[in-house]
Design a protein around this nucleic acid. Structure first.
Lengths: 338, 338
DNA sequence: CTGAAAGCGCTTACAG
DNA sequence: CTGAAAGCGCTTACAG
């Protein structure tokens, strides 16, 4: 690296506010004011600056800006399971929503259930304006790091017991109660719940609401542990079949597991819904495909995203650290699997 | 905003290299050297700095750093179709690969086929180190903007005729030729190709290779225009069925369309592969699901990602603007649909 | 190997 | 409304 800083700059031919100022015949401050929202400039100055800027192809440097304002227009979005189409959909919606407010999305992929310190470092190093965590959890220590730095954080589709944070979920309890009532009304008498990952709040709550109603009605109910994957659903269904004690209804904690269940049942010549009714959760696009026609609970993604974005923007504006578990009502989508 | 810059900083209690220097009893330059890769510091100084840094919870400011080096550790990744599971998979693999080299991914979602100027602005404003464009195209003018700023760019899974850029694709021509030969060897005599979006290079090349072989053999061949979506495949299959001129083999330009085709055929009591053989493209995870068991062409995602990352890192190191259409060989995955 | 100083490209009180 | 100047938190020649 024998090149001086100045040399490097020349190589890249970076156009700065100074250059624009010179060409426009105004001060650098005026150039800055034209590009800084809320600053006051006369129309005359503005025009002179914009003309010069256009000629030079000027673009304000985000980093210099961030350095001073100590603010960025970057939102960190943490995601684990891209395999479940629900999450790419969520990513897309967040990206679109944030873009409307001038924010970009830094995508963080966690391999583990718990967000790793290197990923946290990345978020802190970039001084992100806010963070959305989807299907991951976080240690108390890490959570504190965000609080210390006054970076607002939302758990999306996850709720953490021991940590005081804002979370946005579907009302899983109501949903699963409703699903139990619905299956009862269809005449089912012997129920199975297939769980997602054991430490996911969504799975726990869906189990709670579902089993609550069934136990209250005193009907046969049992649970199987699975992991929110297609293969998990598939294997669990095969296990159930092997046990030769078939239920009359299965509630899988998400759609993708329900698909696995359906495929396993069909391979064993079982008819859906004649022999067995299946309900999933999420209402991903595939649930409406002819092969599956899965009855499921629609997560109100748009409202959930909107709520999350609203909260984050407010907190970015004035940080309060408000913690609250927001739950949004979804709706049952009835299809042929029941 | 009555708060001075200094005041703001105090509020956030930002720890700077200066603070660490004071506590460690060294100069700010030394602190910087500890955190700057390649700089030389004595172990003694390093330890003093690290101890002080730990106590103060110091973290170098990426923006100040970027401002000077005129480099960022951010890669812009542009994506359109999160609906096709192929792309989330690609996103994941890129994120993991780049993380190994300290790069983070800024996720850009384009609604339109062609990347919009606002998205380009974002990438340029953040002075991203490099860009990966997956299922989108780009005007010549925009492409030039990246060249001017010496930002390396890769078209991943897309090739642009009129623009001189580096692209990384599967060898679509070889693949589709192979698929045609394979279907011929299975005894098929009447062929259909279902295309993806009309301006996607992948679809054009797959059609070219496929039709080339069939025309050469003088067998019945026709094409249908579709759009790389499940519904597109489904609707096209229904159209074919309505025309009452059933082919003996269908090659759908991607897996997700093939699923739509299969579902439509099954709804019409057609047996796969007895009545009709189906081949897809991509080998997404779902292709191996029992419902589909789709014969397909596996895109060598890992190699494609690796090639892309290698190129970008080299170009980031020393910009050459090298343009080349790299094609990587995939492999046929034979399943029950043929 | 280390420190003092200049400078990256901006924003922002301050004074006019 | 505008300009001159200070400063954001770093990196980096330069001199020792």
């Amino acid at each position: 690296m024998a090149i001086s800083v100045k040399g490097l700059r020349k190589m890249k031919e970076t156009v700065t506010a100074k250059d624009v100022a010179k060409l426009a015949g105004v001060s650098q401050s005026s150039v800055s004011r034209v590009y800084f929202e809320g600053a006051k400039v006369s129309n005359k100055t503005r025009e002179k600056v914009l003309t010069a800027a256009k000629e030079l192809n000027y673009r304000p440097n985000e980093f210099a800006r961030s350095l001073i304002t100590n603010k960025t227009k970057i939102i960190g979005l943490v995601m684990k399971g891209v395999q479940n189409p629900f999450y790419p959909q969520v990513l897309k919606q967040f990206t679109i929503a944030f873009k409307q407010y001038g924010y970009s999305v830094l995508f963080i992929h966690t391999n583990n259930e718990e967000i790793q310190s290197e990923d946290v470092e990345t978020l802190l190093n970039y001084n992100v304006a806010g963070v959305v965590i989807t299907d991951a959890i976080m240690s108390l220590k890490v959570a504190e790091a965000f609080k210390q730095n006054k970076i607002p954080l939302v758990f999306f589709n996850r709720k953490l017991d021991n940590i005081d944070f804002y979370s946005v979920c579907c009302n899983n309890l109501n949903a699963s109660r409703h699903i139990a009532e619905y299956l009862l009304s269809k005449g089912a008498t012997n129920f199975v719940y297939i769980s997602g990952n054991s430490n996911a709040s969504t799975s726990l709550e869906r189990e709670k609401g579902f089993s609550e109603i069934l136990k209250h009605r005193n009907v046969a109910y049992r649970r199987y542990s699975s992991d929110y994957t297609y293969k998990g659903g598939y294997d669990t269904a095969n296990k159930i079949i092997a046990e030769k004690n078939m239920p009359s209804a299965i509630f899988a904690a998400n759609d993708i597991m329900a698909f696995g269940v359906m495929d396993a049942l069909r391979e064993n010549e079982l008819k859906i819904p004649a022999d067995l009714r299946i309900v999933g959760f999420d209402n991903i696009e595939m649930a409406s495909w002819p092969t599956y026609q899965l009855t499921t609970w629609e997560q109100p993604i748009e409202k959930m995203v909107e709520t999350t974005v609203d909260y984050l923007l407010n907190e970015i504006d004035v940080y309060t650290g408000l913690a609250k578990a927001v739950e949004i009502e979804g709706v049952l989508i009835e299809r042929k699997s029941t």
